[in-house]
Design a protein around this nucleic acid. Structure first.
Lengths: 343, 343
DNA sequence: ATATTATTTTTACGCGCGTAAAGTTTTATA
DNA sequence: TATAAAACTTTACGCGCGTAAAAATAATAT
C-alpha cells in the first residue's frame, strides 16, 4: 500500500494508467472490461487503496444499490434472526442492506419509510406491523418504491407477499395435540396487532371443527408487543381462577407461550407430557428461546429461509427489470412441527 | 401539496422566492436565517414537498451526519435493546444512526467498519466483540474515525470507553447471595469472548475472599455466542454428575443462567429460595427474558441508560469540536440488584 | 434621517463520478 | 492480411448542492 494520496477516480486513473471512464466502467461491473485491463486495474488497486466515493456514485446513478429492510421489532429475537438471514442474502446479491426496526410503533414505521426514501433505495423489504400500520401511507410508499412484504400481509400493498401458511401450520399442531391428548384451547390476545394472529384464530377453529372437536378461544386483554407479559398475566388469571376448559393450551405465538409457561410455573402447575403433568402448552414460531423454556416448548417452526429467499429473489428481479410486478404474488410456506417437552 | 415537480434546490428556490444559497443555509441550520425568511421557506415547504438530495449534500459537506452504531450481536435481545436506546439518542441529536451487527464474528465486525468507512461517518459507537476482535485493525479504524467504545473495552482503542463496573455489580450479588444462603460458586465459560467475563471472574474471587469464603470457579467448555446452549450443556453435566460444590450458582451472565435453569428443570432440580428448592441460581445483566424464566431470575441490571447517554454525549462533543479526546475517558457505571425467584 | 450591522442576492466555482460521443487501438473472425 | 467488432481514450457535460466573494437590501441603532 503506497502512501500516494489518491483522492478521486481521476487520480486513480492516472496511477493505474487507464482512462477514467474505463475505471468507472470497471467499478460498475468488473466483467465489463477486458481481462487484461481488469488485471491492471486490480493490480493498481492492490497498491493504492482507492475506493469510489459512494455519495458521488449515488448522486449520478439512476439507481442506488441500497435495499431497505424494515422489521417490526428488532428487540424480538425472532425478527432479529430473520433480519440477519435476509441481510446476508442482500449482501450476497451485491446490494447494500439497510436494517431498520419499527419498534412496534406505526409512527416509527412511517419514519423508517421516510428515511429510506431519503436514500433512494432500489427496493424495500418490509415486514409491516400489521393492524397498527398506517395502511394508506405504507401503500403510498410502496407505489413510489418497489416494495415486497413479508411476514405480515397488508392487503394489496407492495409487489408481493411471502409468509407462513397459518392454516397448514395450525392444523398441523392442532392435529398433533388432539392425537396425543386432550384437544387444545386456543390462547391469544383479544385484539392482536398481527394479521397472522387472526389467521391462526380462524385456522384453529377450522381445524378443530374438522376433527369434530369443540373450539375454545381464550382471549386475553393487553395491547402492544410485550407478549411475554401479556401471556403471563393472562395465564395467571386463567390458572388462579381455574378457567381453563381443557388441560391443553395452544398459544397463538411462542412469546405468549413463554409468559404462559412462566405463569404455570409460578402457580405450581407442572407442564409437560408425562403422567405427573397437569397441563400441556404449545406455541407457534419456534422462537429462539423456545428451546430453553421449562419445559422446552413444543411449537411450529416457520420456514423463514424460504420466505426470506423468495422475498429477496422477487425484489431483485423487479429491480433488475426496472418494472413492477404484473400481478401481486402471494405465496405461503408450510411450517414444521417441533416436538419438545411441553406438549 | 401542489403537483409541481420540484427536482432540486434551484427549483425550490424559485417557487419559494428565496435565493438558493439562503435555502441551503436554512437546511443546514433553520435558525441561521431571519425569522421571516424561515417562515417563507417553511410555508413553501408545506406546499411543495421538497427535500435536499442527501447524496449531493454528503458529497459536499466536510462532515456527514451519519453515526455508526455497531453491536456484537443483534440476535441477542440485550444488545437489541441497547441499540434501540442509543439509536433514539442519536436521532434526538439530529444525527443519522446506522445500526450494524457483527453477528458474533470478527470478520463481520471488520466488514461493518469497512462499510461504515464508505459512508464517511462523523463518528462511530462500537461495542466490540472483545477477545475475538481484531484489535489492531479496529484500532486503525478508530484512528481514522472518531470512535467511542462501550460494553466491552479494547485497551487503548477509541476516544473513550463506557461500561459496567463489574467489580461493584459482582460484589453486590455475591454479598447478597452469601447473606441469604450458601456462598455461590461461579459458573462461566472457560474461554469467554467477552472481556467483561474475565472481569467478573476476578471480581467474584475478590468478593468471596473479602467475605472470607472460598471461591469456586466452575468453567465449562464451549465456544461462540450460543450461551444458552453452553449453559444448558454445562449445567446438565454438573447436575448429572453431582459436581456442584454448593447449592448456589452465580452465572457469569443471564444467558448462561437461562441454559442452566433449563438444565436444572430437565433434571428435576427445583430452583429457588424456598425450603423445597435444591438450588439457587443467579445471573448478571437483567436480560429481557430473565423475568420469564422458571423461576424468574435474580440478577444484576446494568445501567444502560447511563452508558448509552454518556457514550453518545462524548462522541457528539468530539464531533462538534472536530478534535480528538485529550485523554481516553474510561467510566464504569454501577449495577442494581434485581431480586427475583431464583435466588 | 443617517450610520451600522445583519441578511440576502448574485455570481461563480468545485465536489467526484456517470455517461455520451467521437476517434483510436486492440482483439477476434475469416 | 484484410475486415469487422470490441474495447479503450479523449473530451465534455451534467448531477445537486456547499460555499465563497461581492453587491444589494433590510433591520436596527444612534
Amino acid at each position: 500500500m503506497s502512501e500516494s494520496k489518491i483522492k478521486n477516480m481521476e487520480d486513480f486513473a492516472a496511477v493505474s494508467g487507464i482512462s477514467r471512464p474505463t475505471i468507472s466502467k470497471y467499478f460498475n461491473d468488473p466483467d465489463s472490461v477486458r481481462k487484461s485491463t481488469r488485471a491492471r486495474i486490480e493490480a493498481a488497486l492492490e497498491k493504492h487503496d482507492y475506493r469510489p466515493n459512494i455519495y458521488a456514485i449515488n448522486q449520478n446513478r439512476r439507481q442506488t444499490k441500497n435495499i431497505g429492510l424494515v422489521v417490526p421489532n428488532l428487540t424480538d429475537p425472532f425478527f432479529a434472526g430473520i433480519a440477519r438471514t435476509i441481510e446476508g442474502m442482500i449482501v450476497e446479491a451485491g446490494f447494500n442492506p439497510l436494517l431498520l426496526s419499527s419498534h412496534a410503533g406505526p409512527e416509527q414505521e412511517l419514519a423508517n419509510l421516510e428515511s429510506l426514501r431519503a436514500i433512494k433505495p432500489a427496493g424495500v423489504l418490509l415486514a409491516p406491523l400489521g393492524r397498527a400500520s398506517d395502511h394508506e401511507r405504507v401503500a403510498e410508499f410502496a407505489e413510489e418504491v418497489p416494495t415486497v412484504l413479508f411476514d405480515a400481509n397488508l392487503e394489496g400493498v407492495g409487489e408481493a407477499f411471502f409468509g407462513s401458511d397459518n392454516d397448514q401450520s395450525i392444523e398441523l399442531i392442532v392435529e398433533y395435540l388432539c392425537r396425543t391428548g386432550e384437544p387444545p384451547a386456543f390462547f391469544e390476545m383479544k385484539n392482536p396487532i398481527n394479521p397472522n394472529a387472526y389467521k391462526r384464530r380462524t385456522a384453529y377453529v377450522a381445524a378443530m371443527e374438522r376433527l369434530d372437536q369443540e373450539p375454545h378461544l381464550i382471549q386475553t386483554d393487553g395491547e402492544g408487543w410485550d407478549f411475554e407479559e401479556i401471556g403471563f398475566k393472562g395465564g395467571t388469571r386463567l390458572i388462579e381462577n381455574r378457567l381453563l376448559p381443557t388441560n391443553t393450551v395452544l398459544c397463538s405465538n411462542d412469546r405468549l407461550a413463554i409468559g404462559f409457561l412462566s405463569a404455570a410455573y409460578e402457580n405450581g402447575l407442572r407442564v409437560g407430557l408425562g403422567a405427573g403433568s397437569a397441563l400441556r402448552v404449545a406455541g407457534h414460531d419456534n422462537h429462539p428461546f423456545s428451546q430453553y423454556t421449562c419445559p422446552s416448548l413444543t411449537t411450529v417452526s416457520q420456514d423463514y429461509d424460504s420466505i426470506g429467499a423468495r422475498s429477496v429473489e422477487t425484489l431483485l428481479a423487479l429491480i433488475e427489470s426496472e418494472t413492477r410486478a404484473k400481478e401481486r404474488d402471494v405465496t405461503l410456506f408450510e411450517g414444521r412441527l417441533i416436538m419438545r417437552g411441553s406438549a
